[in-house]
Nucleic acid binder design. Structure first.
Lengths: 336, 336
DNA sequence: CGCTCGAATCGAAACGTTTGCGTCGTCGCC
DNA sequence: GGCGACGACGCAAACGTTTCGATTCGAGCG
C-alpha cells in the first residue's frame, strides 16, 4: 500500500504539502496541488484512517450499543443513527448487549478503547447505573437513547412513554374496559417503568380502582405468562396491554394458551409493535415509537455536545402516536 | 489519559517491558510483572487500540455489510456474525447498503480504509460484480454472505436455495396445486435467482407445463403487485410463493387487495419469513434460512483465510428447512 | 541595493505502540 | 576462575499521519 511518503516523492514535494492538499488545511499553489493529486492517482494512495486518527484526537466514528438491533424498535433506531452518521461522515460501530450488563460493559470498553468520538447507549435492563455514571469521566461524550435515566448528567433522547400510555388507557376506558392486565416486564428499564406509571395515571383519570388491576412485572417470562393466562382465563380482565414487543409475544402466546381470541374476547394493545402490522390478524393496536427520529436525534445531540462540550445536558422527548387497529375494536360495537 | 510511558515510569521499567507484560509476548520476572500491573492500576492506563493497530498490521476488527440489518433474515445473520466475532475478540463494524450499489461501495471503502482485518459482504442487488471482484486486490480478505457469486474467487456461505425451493414446490404439487404464482423479485440477486431455478426444477419434477405458470420478476414492486393481484384475481393460480420477506409482504398485500383469503382460497408460502410466525394468522409456511449459522460460518471462513491466505476459496451451503404451517394446509383436506 | 514581509513549502517532532537487537548480570560447567 | 549461555530487560526504530516552527524566494519599498 502506498503511503504519503510515496506520494510526496512522486510529486516531488514534502509529506506536509500532501497532507495539506488532502485536508485543505492551508493554501497550496494550484500547480503543486495538481501534481500532488496526480501522484495520488498514480500511486493508488489511500489515506490511512488509523494513523490519521492517531495524530488528530478524533476518529470520526461513533459507537452505538442497543440490546438487540433485530428488535423492530431498535432496528429503526439503528437506521436513524446510521443515516445521521452517514450524513455527517461518521462511521458507525454497532454492538448488541443482549440485555446483559456484562456484555454491555465489554462493549463500552471496546468502543471507548477504539476511541470513538461519542457513544450512544440504550442501557440494558440489568445495567448498574453507577457504572454508567462513571462514563462521565471518559473522553468521549455519551448520549442515552430510549432508556433514559433522569439522574445521569448525559444528553438523552426518548419518547413520551408515560403520556402515551395514559392516552391509551383513556381510550380503552372510554370503550368500556374496566379490568386490565398490563404486562410491564422488567421495570428496571426506565422506558417500561414510565409506561407503567402512565398506566396508573390513566386509571386515575378513569376513576378506576388500581387494586383490581393486574400488573405483571419482573424478569421471569414464565411467571408473567402464567399471570396473564390465569387472569384472562378466569375472565378477570377484558383488556391486555403489553409494554414492549417481546412482552407482546409473551402475552399473545398466553392468550392463545387459554384460547382467548383477540379482539373477540379480549382487547389487546402493545407498545413498539410488530413489522407489517396490517398483514396479519389480529391487527394489533400499537403505540409506535418515532424510533428513526430518535436515532437521528441522538446523533445530533452527540454532535452538538462535541462542538460545545460544556453546555448543560439536554433531554429530548419525542411524541409517540397511537395506531388504532382491530385488536381494540370489539368494544366499540358492544358499547352501551 | 495515561500512556504506556506513564506506566513504565511509575513501575520503573521500560515501555517495552510494559508492552510485553500486556501482551504476554515474552517472559518477565513475576516481581516486575506485579509492579507493572500495579502501575497500570494506579495510572488507570488503558491500551490505545489505534496506536496498537498501527504498529501491528491488524486491527482485530471485521466489517459486515448487509442491505438491511433490520430485515429478519439479515438480523439473524448479524447476530451470528456478532457472536462469532465476540468469541474471537473481534470488533464488528456494521454498515447497511440499503440495496444501493453506491452506498455499498462507500461502505466498502470506509471499512477498508479503517483497515478491517476482513470483510463480510452480502452484495446489494444493483452491485456491479466486477467492482466487487476488484476487492481481491485489497489487503483484507472478503467473504460473501447469502448473496453468492459463483464467478468470484472468494470464500462464500449461503443456503441451498435451489434445492429448498424444489422441495417446496414438490410438496405443493403433491397437495394438488398445478397453478403457481412465484414472486421472484430482483433476480440479479443470486439468492433469488437460485430460488427461481429451483422453482423450475420443481415444475419439471411434477411434469407441469412451465408456460402456464406466472413468474413475477423485476425491481418494480407495483408491477409485481399488479401481476399477483391480476393472476390470483382471475383464479389462474392456487398457490403463491414469495422468494423473500419483502416480496411476501408485497404478495400478501396483493392478495388482500383482491380479497383472497389464505389459505381458504389460495395457498401461500415464503422464504425467510416473518418474526413470530405462530402468533398471527395466517400462519405462513416458510423456508427458513439457517441465518445465524450462516453468520457464524462467515466469520469462521474469514478466520481460516486469515491464517491461510493462499488456500483456495471455499463455498459453504447450509441446509434450509421448510416449516409447514396453515397457509399451505387447505388442499390437504380437499385432496382427491 | 539592502531590508522587510508574506506566500509557499519543507523538516522534523510528535501521537502511543510493538519489536528486533543489545546489554548486563548470573549461573553452570569444565 | 574463566567462559559460554541464557534470562531479564532496556533502547530506539519503526508504523503513517498532522502540525508547528523554520526556510526559501521573490516582490516591494525606501
Amino acid at each position: 500500500m502506498a503511503t504519503m511518503v510515496d506520494v510526496a516523492r512522486v510529486a516531488g514535494v514534502s509529506t506536509s504539502t500532501v497532507s495539506h492538499v488532502l485536508n485543505g488545511t492551508r493554501n497550496v499553489e494550484p500547480a503543486t496541488r495538481r501534481r500532488v493529486l496526480a501522484a495520488i492517482e498514480d500511486t493508488g494512495y489511500r489515506q490511512d484512517t488509523l494513523a490519521r486518527a492517531m495524530r488528530r484526537a478524533r476518529t470520526d466514528s461513533i459507537g452505538l450499543i442497543v440490546s438487540d438491533a433485530g428488535e423492530p424498535a431498535f432496528a429503526e433506531m439503528v437506521h436513524g443513527v446510521e443515516q445521521a452518521a452517514a450524513e455527517n461522515d461518521l462511521t458507525l460501530l454497532l454492538a448488541n448487549s443482549a440485555e446483559d450488563a456484562q456484555r454491555e460493559q465489554r462493549a463500552i470498553t471496546t468502543l471507548m478503547n477504539r476511541r470513538v468520538d461519542g457513544l450512544i447507549l440504550a442501557c440494558s435492563a440489568s445495567t448498574d447505573i453507577s457504572a454508567i455514571g462513571a462514563l462521565g469521566d471518559e473522553r468521549a461524550p455519551v448520549v442515552l437513547l430510549d432508556r433514559l435515566h433522569r439522574t445521569l448528567p448525559f444528553d438523552q433522547v426518548g419518547a413520551d412513554n408515560r403520556e402515551s400510555m395514559r392516552a391509551l388507557v383513556n381510550h380503552l376506558v372510554e370503550q368500556g374496559h374496566t379490568g386490565f392486565v398490563v404486562v410491564a416486564g422488567d421495570t428496571r428499564v426506565p422506558t417500561l417503568a414510565e409506561r407503567l406509571e402512565g398506566f396508573h395515571d390513566g386509571l386515575r383519570d378513569g376513576h378506576l380502582h388500581s387494586g383490581s388491576q393486574v400488573v405483571c412485572e419482573g424478569v421471569d417470562a414464565s411467571v408473567m405468562f402464567a399471570q396473564v393466562a390465569e387472569t384472562v382465563g378466569r375472565g378477570a380482565a377484558s383488556a391486555v396491554i403489553a409494554c414492549s414487543t417481546p412482552l407482546a409475544t409473551l402475552a399473545l402466546n398466553a392468550l392463545q394458551s387459554v384460547n382467548r381470541s383477540v379482539p373477540g374476547e379480549v382487547a389487546f394493545a402493545t407498545f413498539d409493535g410488530f413489522r407489517n402490522p396490517d398483514l396479519f390478524s389480529p391487527r394489533v393496536t400499537t403505540v409506535r415509537q418515532p424510533a428513526y427520529d430518535m436515532g437521528m436525534t441522538a446523533v445530533q445531540l452527540l454532535l452538538a455536545r462535541l462542538s460545545a462540550p460544556e453546555s448543560s445536558p439536554r433531554t429530548v422527548r419525542l411524541h409517540q402516536s397511537i395506531e388504532l387497529r382491530d385488536s381494540t375494536e370489539a368494544f366499540t360495537f358492544t358499547k352501551p
